[in-house]
Nucleic acid binder design. Structure first.
Lengths: 340, 340
DNA sequence: GTTGCGCATGTTTACGTAAACACATTGCCA
DNA sequence: TGGCAATGTGTTTACGTAAACATGCGCAAC
């Protein structure tokens, strides 16, 4: 019977047939027990489970995927792992998928649409049940391969635009607008903006565009605007805040692309003895958990990262393919703190 | 020829055979082009690539795994996604695997060895090339299934103990010892300890044990010791620091299980006008990036999280199965800041 | 008492790729 | 010029599982 191939140094792993032989049943019965589907009597189930445990058999969930066109996988693209926002999204995705025994397979795009495109090709090579992509902007090639393969796609974090089929998130335009209105209302008239990723963060740009439109319409002005390259951090925020305050006419308020940058601003002011918000007001974005530990509560927009990841994954699992294009808003909320 | 199964609503995806037919070659030639192996002439390669692009064919990397006993997967267990430490590890794993076109498939154990065991069973159902597990402590069932399946395992973050086959990390005992020695040397004689995960974080416990042994030997004493349940955060650190300072005889120095907790301590002192390190000294663990933005540089132990993830993944990819048990130290270094 | 349905199990076959082996062609050195 | 290695391509087969279909049994409704 020794017709096994001796491929490399890999030794033969037990299969359902091995379990079946020991339990005295057919391979198909083992398959049914492993998946908990179909009719199986208690006795047979026990025999199979016992046999499997005995020889250390672990269900191979990939082997059947070929024949059924279905792997227990969801492909996820995140722009970065440096920002908690996306690890929280991933966490939400993971939690939703856990319920169905699926797993996320992820890749990091570094905020590049070209890298995203490469990643999608790679993730499609796993024949996933669906994809989760950040934002609504993608390359033409990506859209083409999505259409050709017919893979289901959930776009997340944004609803300002046209989704491929379903999107889950909030309006960045509205978030930028709301923040601008709040600051105008508070009486600030000169503003600074600190962006991220050298402008490659398209959703931050959407916030900024709406923000600057509102302040322009209110007759106020933007006196500082910089988007440092690369990953953002408290440290970068601290440095740029130093720069902002070194200007001949520093702005009355600074809008940061995210909380890390803004928190760096708070730290800088704290260290330099600059009074917030008297000398300068600061506003962030995301509402990350660590803010509540800072000496001054930051004014920011709280976004439901975890929930967005969860909702997108749930949709991929539960909805059918015939559904129409849909936008699901999981809204972001302005939270006024002590820094504005 | 229409013998395709109409399984559910899944439409038929193009296969290598389809590409082969269009390009006028055999399926095997397409396979060689897709994987970039073997001898292929330039003309044929171009034809195949063109044909693939034309019909939107994407290489199915799971289909052959059955026959070759090899899937391009590494299973990774992390204790939590709440702490940057492990998202950085995951990031390092991801980067190392990228080079070989493998992907991590991860699960979160929540610091429970039982959950870890369940996860390992689940991850093994992917027939991964290897597993990356946190720490050297595992359940007996987990060890058994590892032995039975013969899957390769890299254990990370710890080297104080006996690895299954290879481990990558540093000595937590030494880290705790070094910190204790430093604080003793600075003249502190009464200490507090703030742990994590209600004591379920076994590596934090190792640091604490070594820490308390050294201070005991030096004739100093531990006057506060608490490990809050659940995830740690700056907020929790802030609350417990308040508690520490509310004691009748507060300690001269507090050792926190991680930087988030310690940073919360800094924030509390800052808000309450308590002088660091005069009134109280604070020490953390990990050396996370955000520390450099804080108003006071925290004394901590800097750990190479990213590098550990990368080294473990590299080892799984490159070493062969015959190698002996090995420990690879990627050392953690005491970094003295302004808080001790 | 026979019909039919729920339950429990088995048999056959499809899946898409990659290893192993086979074979043809080319070019170069002896 | 003959032989052999390097190059390029094809054929056959294995992989482990799950869908589809088949089968058999017991029991209740008529």
């Amino acid at each position: 019977m020794a017709k096994r191939r001796a491929t490399s140094s890999q030794r033969h792993q037990p299969t359902m047939h091995d379990v079946a032989r020991i339990a005295g049943v057919s391979q198909m019965t083992v398959s049914r027990v492993m998946r908990g589907t179909g009719y199986i009597s208690k006795d047979v189930r026990n025999d199979v489970v016992k046999a499997a445990r005995e020889i250390g058999y672990v269900h191979n969930r990939l082997a059947g995927g070929n024949a059924t066109y279905d792997n227990p996988i969801v492909g996820v693209v995140v722009p970065t792992m440096q920002n908690r926002v996306f690890t929280e999204v991933l966490s939400g995705v993971n939690e939703a998928l856990n319920e169905s025994g699926l797993r996320p397979v992820f890749g990091v795009s570094e905020y590049s649409l070209e890298t995203e495109e490469d990643l999608v090709f790679d993730l499609l090579s796993w024949r996933p049940r669906g994809l989760i992509l950040p934002g609504l902007e993608h390359t033409a090639s990506l859209r083409k391969i999505i259409a050709q393969t017919g893979v289901r796609v959930a776009e997340i974090m944004d609803i300002d635009g046209d989704p491929i089929s379903a999107c889950f998130g909030f309006s960045h335009a509205k978030a930028g607008e709301d923040m601008a209105k709040h600051l105008i209302e508070r009486g600030y008239r000169t503003f600074g903006y600190v962006g991220s990723q050298g402008g490659a963060d398209l959703r931050a740009t959407k916030r900024f565009d709406a923000f600057s439109r509102v302040i322009r319409e209110a007759g106020a002005s933007l006196v500082f605007n910089r988007s440092p390259e690369g990953a953002t951090s408290m440290e970068v925020g601290r440095q740029i805040t130093d720069e902002v305050l070194g200007q001949p006419n520093p702005p009355g308020a600074v809008y940061y692309a995210n909380d890390d940058l803004a928190a760096g601003g708070i730290m800088h002011c704290l260290a330099e003895g600059i009074s917030i918000p008297k000398q300068i007001a600061l506003a962030g974005f995301n509402g990350l958990g660590f803010l509540s530990a800072l000496p001054k509560l930051l004014t920011t927009t709280v976004t439901p990262r975890f929930e967005i990841g969860k909702a997108a994954a749930s949709w991929l699992m539960h909805s059918d393919t015939t559904e129409a294009i849909q936008k699901t808003e999981l809204s972001a909320k302005l939270r006024i703190g002590e820094t504005t």
